[in-house]
Write a protein that binds this DNA or RNA. Sequence first.
DNA 1: ATTAGCACTCGTGATACTAGAGTGCTAACA
DNA 2: TGTTAGCACTCTAGTATCACGAGTGCTAAT
Lengths: 338, 338
Amino acid sequence: MLTERQLEVMLSVVYEYIKSGESVGSRTVSRRYLTGHSSATIRNEMSDLEEMGFLKQPHTSSGRIPTTLGYRLYVDSVLQRVDSSKYSKEWIKSLGEHRKGIEGALESASDILSRVSNYVGVAAVTPLDKVKFQRVDFVRLGERNVLLLVVLQGGLVHQKVISLPWDMTQEYLDDLSRRINVFAGCEWTEVKKSLKAYIMEELQDYKSACAAALRELEGIMISPSIKAFTGSMSHMLNLPDFQDLSRIQTLYEFLEQEEGMAELVKSCSKEGINIIIGEENESPAMKRSALVAASTICNGQMTMIGVVGPERMDYEKVITTIDRVFRTMDTGSDEEAE
Amino acid sequence: MLTERQLEVMLSVVYEYIKSGESVGSRTVSRRYLTGHSSATIRNEMSDLEEMGFLKQPHTSSGRIPTTLGYRLYVDSVLQRVDSSKYSKEWIKSLGEHRKGIEGALESASDILSRVSNYVGVAAVTPLDKVKFQRVDFVRLGERNVLLLVVLQGGLVHQKVISLPWDMTQEYLDDLSRRINVFAGCEWTEVKKSLKAYIMEELQDYKSACAAALRELEGIMISPSIKAFTGSMSHMLNLPDFQDLSRIQTLYEFLEQEEGMAELVKSCSKEGINIIIGEENESPAMKRSALVAASTICNGQMTMIGVVGPERMDYEKVITTIDRVFRTMDTGSDEEAE
DNA sequence: ATTAGCACTCGTGATACTAGAGTGCTAACA
DNA sequence: TGTTAGCACTCTAGTATCACGAGTGCTAAT
């Protein structure tokens, strides 16, 4: 559908635009990239490419800039060059044993990605349906108020303060948690079955309180509550792409709220590298931005690290950086790359 | 030192400048505030006030704007009007029993403050020297890697992944934590004494591992690691004060890193309302911004909620808002005020 | 199919000018 | 002596104008 030369022109334009930030004209392409052809030839090609929807003009008589489709073309070509088979699950498996734990690891990942990319680094982990739990603990805080701590397999910690219909002593709570922890490593559904009998038979006075506690516990186990981390956003203020304040504002608002991050995670549908560019994004707030992320499914939870930036992003650098961080997290050495 | 009329002029200027955002001239003051005096009179007063360091001119032949000293004058007068005796410790005492727990409460406080003030809401809690602990839990994640969970009195949860010199079974870890939890509610120093004997005598093979675990635990108990929450920062992009991107950038950078928040907390030296304006701030990043915060000491930890915004902040509104949130948190109803 | 040439478009930056708001100062006034 | 009116001066923000340059589209020649 696209001739060889058209592809060359496209890649040149996108590359040059990413590098310079200014709309690129036919002359530039003819002089720097396709030196064998005159600017007029390029001009004709560009005109065709515009009609096909790969390029657009900010205004008549200025150079061309890529559309989302154009970026997609470029990114796919970059992805072909990068050997994505390198990505292994090793790192995520070892995360739980990482000296920082999974949360610390994700936090520093988002931080590092922010710094080296100068865009916004993000990281998140969300339990899937069949998450297994590792540990449950109830801590009595005050009358009828209990802090519920749940450690999922992989080391992810969830906490919630719940209030019970009955005041229970710490001893009773300990007993309850001990009985649950017997099932450490099991899926919740199994645990639930076994516990029902216990509640029915052995507890009388505290039945309702325990039932309430278990309901809360189930809520945590089942609901796919996401844990998200966002690196420093302040670098992006430097980018020429965000001279328009309202643009960066909508993006910030999007990233600041949990729903935003949840959507980003959701959009990383496949394992490995995911790239969603501009218009491809579902949320209006992301229509002029892009996400590059790597995700893995392991231990019954989906983990993702990535970078959010302008559509005009240095995809090549970001992709390789994410690759680096991916594997660096494995070894636990997280000095800043490059 | 300041005549009655000079004070009136000062308050008028600051009030008007906060409201309008534009430098205020003598004519404005004479027409809207001190109607009994001509603009020339005001002009002379303003000239004097400038010499005294309360006002300054952005450029010759424009109106005056307050200096940090000028804001201070105004804020102190506002504080006199607001009955700060209303602030009670009640709310913080009940935080541990709050349905969201202290962390949830602080998070929503910073969130609410951001939204109603349109500046940046912040909230933090930091344990002081004599913090008491409520609960300790060790969860074995993998070979020699253990997740250490500590619940401080008040419901604050700290977590850390530690690696031990020895692989310990979950049973041993449970035993260790059970022995520590006997001392729930005590200060760490006491616990330490009592545990030493136990380690020396009863444990042999695991001695070094337990000692390592306890060292880590002590690290958490002693180090005043701060837990900070920052509300949405995107609103501030709308403010005319931050048309200059570099200004908001330095501020963002400051708030994004933990040291920044730590400094803000540190600067809230006294209980109750603290206000630090512009030049009064230690950090260069805050020299053109202001902090309004309320802090309390309770349960061996210092808790703070506040607002960071431009020096030209609507202090009156912010102060009363913080007051509101302060007391709203108590009751647990956190619908948005106003 | 490619290229050179040319007229046309449009954004950018420089310059100049004006209107308006505000000051400082002096002189008159109570 | 404190207050006020008046006036000249300063500085900013906004606007209009102009020229330049980069780029396009089209046509005609190769």
